[in-house]
Simulated assay, not measured.
Amino acid sequence: MINLLISGFMIMIIMLIMIMVIVIISNKSFMDREKSSPFECGFDPISSSRTSFSLHFYLIAVIFLIFDVEIVLILPIMIIMKYSMILEWFMSSSLFIIILLVGLLHEWYQEMLEWVN
């Protein structure tokens, strides 16, 4: 029991020494405050939050989320093929891919994928 307490005490002392050395060695300054602040789409975090917001950033974020969810839904298609009939699998995966392509074409024609306005 004494050995366990001595070991725990020594570990605590070593951790405190390491933390003190890191604090002394670290090169923090007032200029690093801007680097450690959260980045929100190019807005100044100190200014008013009621400034105008570009709709383009919002659309890009929504498109990213949609494609991200689509990838999560597409990945298990190969595993599902193993456990279902080929015709069922082909029809369901084809329908899913067609819906995705129609959505992509709609976004393309609405010019949501254009980076330059």
Score class of each variant (00 low, 15 high):
Ile2Met: 04
Asn3Val: 04
Leu5Ile: 07
Leu5Tyr: 05
Gly8Pro: 02
Ile11Leu: 11
Met15Asp: 00
Leu16Gly: 03
Ile17Phe: 00
Ile19Thr: 09
Val21Gln: 00
Ile22Met: 15
Ile24Thr: 07
Ile25Asn: 00
Ile25Glu: 01
Lys28Ile: 07
Phe30Ala: 04
Met31Gln: 05
Lys35Pro: 01
Ser36Ile: 06
Phe39Glu: 05
Phe39Gln: 05
Phe39Thr: 01
Cys41Glu: 14
Phe43Ser: 11
Phe43Lys: 14
Pro45Ala: 05
Ser47Arg: 13
Ser49Phe: 06
Ser49Pro: 03
Ser49Gln: 13
Ser49Leu: 08
Arg50Leu: 15
Thr51Ile: 15
Ser52Gln: 12
Leu59Asp: 15
Leu59Ala: 12
Phe64Asp: 02
Leu65Met: 13
Asp68Ser: 14
Val69Glu: 00
Val69Met: 03
Glu70Tyr: 02
Val72Met: 11
Leu73Met: 11
Ile74His: 03
Leu75Ser: 02
Pro76Glu: 10
Ile77Glu: 07
Ile77Tyr: 04
Ile77Phe: 11
Met78Arg: 08
Met78His: 09
Ile80Val: 12
Ile80Asp: 04
Met81Val: 00
Met81Trp: 09
Met81Lys: 12
Met85Ser: 12
Phe90Leu: 12
Phe90His: 06
Ser93Trp: 07
Ser94Cys: 08
Leu95Val: 12
Ile97Trp: 13
Ile98His: 06
Leu101Tyr: 09
Val102Thr: 14
Gly103Gln: 08
Leu104Trp: 03
Leu104Gly: 02
Leu105Pro: 00
His106Arg: 07
Trp108Cys: 09
Trp108Pro: 00
Tyr109Ala: 01
Gln110Met: 14
Gln110Asp: 06
Glu111Val: 08
Val116Phe: 09
Val116Gln: 10
